[in-house]
């Protein structure tokens, strides 16, 4: 009964991992025979600061996305955590962006932010801010990209926070009210501490999710300008299909996998904490 599943797992999950490690020790361009080079690929990644640049770009995009979507998701959850049709409608609207493809969202925002005729650019121009070219400047591009990701994934954070809010017993909040706590006090001293495990969970899962971003980068910035949005997966893709350096791409994929493992460890830790409360 389990055999077909295990065969697929072995072929497409565990075997590729081993092969990735094997490739990473070789120089191979897919055309000529592979040549063993030891740890050279890893050394090359570290040497030119290439890996550091990629990690920095990934962190800029990811942290903007995670901080923004977590904060916004929490605020939205507090706002729509009520019965009624309007609140349900708002919940669905916000969450819909999470279901639509990254390609759709990327193209949509590329158009809205278009310097010449984009609606959002035009709107900001009218209000006196120059947003034209936020994606064209290396100082702003990773953050602009991060904000687009916020728009896409805030609904995910909102849904998880709603789950967290609904698991808080009403009696706890009522007791605080009876004790004379103000609304802000209740939020910061009762609701927020009780949401802490959900908060940890939302941030770690969003971090893992946004670390894997590729589609939106490929569609919106192609890693530029000046490599400012060359995030991990985009860089691996580039090494593989533009430079035909399978070994280098594999070495980077192995490093990426180890980082994801670390983040997952963080997630499990957060999950334990959620279970404990």
């Amino acid at each position: 009964m389990l055999a077909p599943t295990l065969v697929v797992l072995a072929t497409f999950y565990f075997y590729p991992l081993l092969v990735a490690v094997y490739y990473s020790l070789h120089a191979w361009d897919l055309l000529t025979p592979a040549r063993y080079v030891g740890l050279d690929n890893y050394r090359a990644l570290l040497a030119g600061g290439a890996l550091a640049d990629v990690l920095l770009a990934t962190l800029r995009v990811s942290l903007t996305a995670v901080l923004g979507s977590t904060l916004l998701g929490l605020l939205l959850a507090l706002a729509v955590n009520r019965p009624g049709r309007l609140a349900a409608f708002v919940r669905s609207s916000v969450f819909s962006a999470y279901v639509v493809s990254w390609v759709s969202v990327g193209l949509l925002w590329l158009w809205l932010l278009d310097a010449d005729a984009g609606a959002v650019s035009a709107l900001f121009r009218m209000l006196g801010f120059g947003t034209a070219g936020v994606l064209a400047r290396p100082e702003s591009a990773p953050y602009a990209l991060g904000l687009v990701v916020v728009w896409k994934v805030a609904g995910y954070a909102m849904v998880l926070f709603l789950g967290g809010l609904q698991s808080i017993p009403p009696s706890v909040v009522e007791a605080a009210t009876l004790d004379g706590a103000s609304r802000l006090d209740r939020f910061f001293h009762v609701t927020l501490p009780l949401l802490a495990p959900t908060l940890a969970f939302v941030t770690t899962t969003s971090l893992i999710l946004t670390f894997q971003a590729f589609d939106v980068v490929r569609v919106m910035t192609q890693g530029g300008p000046v490599r400012s949005t060359t995030v991990f997966v985009y860089s691996i893709y580039e090494q593989m299909f533009m430079d035909l350096r399978v070994g280098r791409a594999s070495a980077e994929a192995v490093v990426f996998f180890v980082i994801l493992l670390g983040l997952t460890g963080l997630e499990l830790w957060a999950f334990r904490r959620r279970g404990a409360v």
Binding site: F12, Y13, F14, Y15, P16, L17, V19, A20, Y23, L30, Q212, F214, F232, V233, I236, M240, V246, A249, S250, A253, F256, F257, L260, L261, T264
Partner: peptide, 15 residues
């Protein structure tokens, strides 16, 4: 769940 497509694609493409 720990091995996303983004990690698997290089060796799988080779295969």
């Amino acid at each position: 769940l720990l091995v996303p497509a983004q990690v698997r694609f290089v060796p799988t493409f080779g295969l």
